[in-house]
Amino acid sequence: MTGHDLFAAIQAKLGPEAARHRGIDAPARRDTAIAGGSYRSPGTLVDGFRAGDGDTEVRGIVVAARASTAVLKRAKELGANLVISRQAFLGDSQDRPVGKPEPALAEKLALIESAGLMMLRLQDPRTGPAGRALVEALPRAIGLSRPLGAVNLASGLVYRASPTTALALIRKVKLALPTQTVRLVGDPGMAVRGIAFATETSRPNALNPLLSRPDINLLVAGEIHETETTAYVLDCIALGQPKALLLVGPIELEEPAARMLTELLMPTTNVPVTYLPSSPALLDVV
């Protein structure tokens, strides 16, 4: 099976790509906004081969939240030649260069070439049972199994919580993610009633409408725009509203999905499929 064959099989297995809809947190729209465009510009799909020859026979597969250079080196050691990355790994959200010059990026591309790696970005599937399972991987990993409402991810993944506190949920998140460096805005002892998950990285201020909903009082996201979303939560709290924001990191947010994708791929191919955490990871100064 070649890389392209495998990609086609994955797409068939994971369900249709989103119908030009990137959810509440569209990376492409975010990039447009950074460049001075409207927050409301249409989204773009991101999946596909980013480097390497997709016509090569697949000998082994590594799946990562972000295919860091350390992940690529380990993949080479494992004898894998196809690396699947949930997050962008070659620059911005569409894997375009960010800064110039970028020596570390050049070294990474040289490693990809010398090791004969195929690099596949896979973050678009979010409809159909398997695509939904990937999107819901983190909530499922902390015991939340059934989101409320419609399947429109623009409304966020929303769950009604069993009686619990923000601190209890944070402890579950830390068990589910390979990180301890989460950040909470709000009271750890707050009783959580409704939880919303932003399923991708950061969408400036579009998360605030989720937080403003009366049935949601904890938002879990990878990253946010601090002067917009953090500021909003602080003012909610100042008004006496029991609200909180939990930031887990946009790379870390994809770790449960990468693990789940690994499990989904195993029956699809007879070559080894290995999940590797993206590294190195952040630490807290204590």
């Binding site: 860091s68 997050q87 962008a88 620059g91 970028e102 070294e107 790379i251 190195p280």
Partner: peptide
Amino acid sequence: GEVREPEVLGYAQDLAES
């Protein structure tokens, strides 16, 4: 200060290998 983590911390991840 504030960073867009996939881009900037991602780059730092890669740089850390060299």
